[in-house]
Amino acid sequence: MQINRRFLSLCLAVVGLLSLATPVVAQSVNRAAIDELNTQLLYVALPLTLFVELTLVYAIYRFRNNDDPSPTVDDPGLEITWTAATAVILVFVGVSGFFVMTNPYLTPTAMADTGDPAANAATAGDELIVEVDAYQWGWSFHYPDANVTTRDRLVIPADRDVRFVMSSRDVIHSLYVPDLGIKQDVFPGTETVARTHATETGEYRLYCTELCGDGHARMHGAVVVLNETAYGDWQDRRSAA
């Protein structure tokens, strides 16, 4: 009876964790893809964890007083079954991870070329380009279309593709906006690219996640996501100033 109660409690705990596995509404397309992958892997990992732990508990209880254990009997069918099950799980994890890693918002170089120069130009034309300049220990954001530059404060519109073209003045830095699912290293002497498509307005934190000197802890900033109208007004005010 005690074991049954423990089993029931464990099952209820797993159900509770599964109910928490569904993430809240993501703030960007990047974050939505990452959260979806994490949820898929969690739904696979939790039942496996439960199965292994219950098997372990059963074995400890069932054979606790076995003073004369006998060797395990060969069971080719069981061995084939768990090998095949493991292969299926690994294929699922690999395929899920592959589709997320080839997402153009997470891996900008994976963005497919349509083969139509006009279509490719139109797609690129819809993007907001922000030039990111990293230095010890701060961030500079330049908007070529409006000739606007800000420091440590990145302002972007919601529901629009944004491309960050990044370079460093000195050492390696890393742009990290956890709420938007953005993380990309920034190198001196070369350009790297990151993309996002924010879906929720608000203000989020920005960090450098590459140790870049004694001022690394101070190298942070804010990301402000505005609706299209508010973003246009902000850009007009900055341009006029």
Rank of each mutant, 00 (worst) to 15 (best):
D152Y: 02
D179Y: 04
I156E: 03
G215D: 10
M219T: 11
Y207S: 04
G215A: 04
A146H: 11
H216T: 15
L175E: 05
L206Y: 01
Q136T: 08
T196M: 10
V155H: 03
G202D: 04
L128D: 01
T201R: 10
R169L: 12
A134M: 12
M166Y: 07
N147D: 15
L180W: 05
R218Y: 14
Y207D: 03
L128W: 05
H173D: 06
E210C: 13
V193Q: 11
R151K: 12
A134G: 11
S167Q: 05
I156A: 01
V130P: 03
T149P: 07
V171W: 13
N147W: 08
W137D: 10
E131P: 00
V177P: 00
H216V: 15
V162M: 06
T123R: 15
G213Q: 06
D145A: 15
L206W: 03
A134D: 09
G215W: 12
V186K: 06
H173P: 01
Y143C: 00
Q184Y: 02
R151V: 11
V171S: 13
A146N: 06
I129L: 15
G215H: 05
P178T: 05
S140N: 12
G221W: 10
T209A: 13
V223A: 04
Y143A: 08
D133Q: 13
S167D: 05
G215T: 12
D145K: 09
Y135N: 09
Y143V: 03
P157N: 10
R160C: 09
Y135Q: 09
S167W: 09
S174W: 02
F141Q: 08
A119C: 09
T199N: 08
D214L: 06
V224E: 15
F164C: 07
A222D: 10
P157H: 12
D185I: 04
R205D: 14
V155Q: 05
T196G: 01
D152S: 14
C208Q: 05
V162S: 10
D179P: 03
E191S: 07
N147I: 07
I156K: 07
I129Q: 10
E127H: 01
H220K: 05
A217P: 02
T192R: 11
E127C: 00
D170Q: 12
G202H: 11
P144H: 03
S168C: 03
V171P: 00
H216A: 15
G181T: 02
D185E: 07
H142Y: 15
Y135K: 11
H142D: 02
D161C: 06
R205T: 08
S167C: 03
E191W: 08
S168P: 13
R160W: 00
S140M: 14
V171F: 13
Y135V: 01
A134L: 13
D185M: 10
T150I: 12
G202A: 10
A122E: 14
T190P: 02
Y176P: 06
F141S: 11
W139I: 06
G125W: 13
V177D: 01
D152W: 03
L128Q: 10
D214R: 04
V193L: 06
I156H: 06
L180D: 02
R163G: 01
R153W: 02
R169P: 07
V132N: 07
E191G: 04
F187Y: 13
V193P: 00
R163K: 15
A134R: 03
M219A: 13
Q184D: 01
L180I: 12
R153S: 04
F187V: 07
T199V: 13
P178V: 09
D159E: 14
R163Q: 14
